[in-house]
Amino acid sequence: MALNTPQITPTKKITVRAIGEELPRGDYQRCPQCDMLFSLPEINSHQSAYCPRCQAKIRDGRDWSLTRLAAMAFTMLLLMPFAWGEPLLHIWLLGIRIDANVMQGIWQMTKQGDAITGSMVFFCVIGAPLILVTSIAYLWFGNRLGMNLRPVLLMLERLKEWVMLDIYLVGIGVASIKVQDYAHIQAGVGLFSFVALVILTTVTLSHLNVEELWERFYPQRPATRRDEKLRVCLGCHFTGYPDQRGRCPRCHIPLRLRRRHSLQKCWAALLASIVLLLPANLLPISIIYLNGGRQEDTILSGIMSLASSNIAVAGIVFIASILVPFTKVIVMFTLLLSIHFKCQQGLRTRILLLRMVTWIGRWSMLDLFVISLTMSLINRDQILAFTMGPAAFYFGAAVILTILAVEWLDSRLLWDAHESGNARFDD
């Protein structure tokens, strides 16, 4: 018995066209964080690309023209004298008006014999932002004059995390709450300039795509075929072959399989920071003279006294001054041990922890910024005066060393310790 099946006739004509040209192939790229070699397709503007294995951002879609970056830099340069030299806060102490600005706080630190601690604050609040705007201006002028731009481009990517104007702005709020127990506070004209400078700096850093600047100024022929001998440069993120001198053909720094002496430098910085954190938390970090009496505060006791007036601000200072430094030390110690013992479990967790400490590390400088600003506000000789204690130097040095330890660690070593050939990683 035959089955009668109805015929289905399409209502619209289906047209099949042959592909007349070869589909576009992607360029081969190595991930600078996990060293995976993959094919990167062509990316349009405002599109980002991520590593298929570790999800690290390979290409950032946010990109401004150099002219727009230069305009932002010149605007920031105009704001800087007002943000640093004009009063941020006014207080009335014992019937006398006192003005506080950024430069005055750094000068008070240096004047009291601790120039190293003052230079830490100076670099993060004044030096690094000033280098940022002058570097962008150098790129703008240098591109037109045919100057060598490689050193500036190499420095810009590392400079971003040292620009800490946003953290200093939080420190202004913390210092205001600490001082309000002794005097009446009012915002100064410099505060508005400083807030504007923070906003412009944040926007500029978020749109400063150094890798795209490398592509514009020093374009290189990408690798179009897969080759395990391809290496990625950690300076400019170019994937290719080393030249005859073993250097990256684009930025001219040595092109090595792994960062040289990464573990040794990381261990040295980490152990030194552990040693410095002990006096930083045991010795007094601030000293207040009130009517001839002397009151010393460690980091913890200062947080407890701050909690009596504002528990939320005390929580912020606790996280930045105690929780973050010790968390960074514990995480980095764990990561280094996992590399030495070739741990194969929990790779995803370790990668996330490394990215976390990379982002939060700079916030530990908050305590030094609060001390710097408070020193310029309260300084009335023996009637009422505020000065920093010996722990300030140890704390600042420990924070900087932990930042350097994270920067010096080559994250690809975590993958080397893991089993080879993993296309995915999980716990």
Rank of each mutant, 00 (worst) to 15 (best):
M1L: 02
M1I: 01
A2C: 09
T5R: 12
K12E: 06
K13H: 05
V16L: 05
V16I: 05
G20D: 07
E21R: 08
E22W: 07
Y28G: 08
C31H: 00
P32F: 07
Q33N: 10
Q33Y: 10
D35L: 01
M36S: 07
L37V: 07
S39T: 08
I43T: 06
S45F: 08
Q47D: 09
P52C: 07
P52D: 04
R53Y: 06
A56Q: 04
K57H: 05
K57F: 05
I58E: 03
D63G: 13
W64A: 15
L66K: 04
T67D: 04
R68V: 02
A70E: 14
L78K: 01
L79A: 03
F82L: 07
E86P: 03
P87I: 08
L89T: 07
I91T: 05
I91A: 01
L93V: 02
L93S: 01
G95D: 01
R97W: 04
D99R: 12
A100M: 01
V102L: 08
M103G: 03
I106H: 05
Q108D: 14
K111M: 04
D114M: 14
A115T: 11
I116H: 15
S119W: 02
F122E: 12
V125N: 07
I126T: 14
A128Y: 01
P129A: 12
P129W: 03
P129N: 09
I131M: 04
L132I: 03
V133I: 14
T134A: 14
T134S: 13
W140C: 15
F141G: 06
G142Y: 02
G142P: 01
G142E: 01
G146F: 03
M155G: 02
L156M: 09
E157W: 15
K160C: 06
L165P: 15
L165C: 12
L165A: 13
V170W: 15
V170N: 03
I172V: 08
G173C: 10
V174C: 15
V174S: 12
S176L: 05
I177D: 03
V179H: 04
Q180V: 15
Q180S: 13
Y182R: 01
Q186E: 06
L191S: 13
L191R: 02
S193F: 02
V195K: 02
V195W: 05
A196Q: 09
L197G: 05
V203C: 14
H207W: 15
L208C: 15
V210D: 14
L213K: 15
E215A: 14
E215L: 12
R216C: 12
P219K: 14
R221M: 14
P222H: 14
A223I: 12
K229A: 14
V232F: 13
C233Q: 00
P242H: 14
D243I: 10
Q244V: 09
R245M: 13
P249S: 11
I253K: 01
R256C: 11
R256W: 09
R258I: 10
R258C: 08
R259H: 11
Q264E: 04
Q264Y: 03
W267N: 14
W267M: 14
A269F: 04
L270E: 12
L271A: 12
A272E: 01
V275H: 07
L276T: 12
P279V: 15
P279C: 15
I287G: 03
I288A: 01
Y289F: 11
Y289Q: 02
Y289D: 01
E296D: 10
D297T: 05
I299T: 12
L300Y: 15
S301K: 07
S301Y: 08
A307V: 12
S308Q: 14
S309Q: 06
N310L: 05
I311L: 14
A314W: 05
V317F: 08
A320T: 04
I322H: 02
F326H: 05
F326C: 10
T327G: 15
K328T: 00
I330K: 09
M332R: 00
F333T: 12
L335R: 01
L337Q: 10
I339S: 07
K342Q: 12
K342C: 11
L347M: 12
L347I: 12
R348K: 10
R348P: 13
T349E: 11
R350P: 09
L353D: 01
L354I: 10
L354S: 11
L354N: 10
R355T: 14
T358G: 12
T358S: 09
I360E: 01
I360Q: 04
G361H: 04
W363H: 05
S364F: 00
L366E: 10
D367C: 00
F369A: 03
I371N: 00
I371K: 00
N379W: 01
D381P: 08
Q382I: 09
Q382L: 09
L384A: 05
A385G: 05
F386G: 00
G389I: 00
P390W: 06
F393Y: 09
Y394A: 02
A397R: 00
L401F: 09
L401A: 12
L401E: 11
T402A: 01
I403K: 06
E407C: 09
D410H: 00
L413N: 11
L414I: 07
W415A: 09
D416Q: 09
A417G: 09
S420P: 11
A423M: 10
F425S: 14
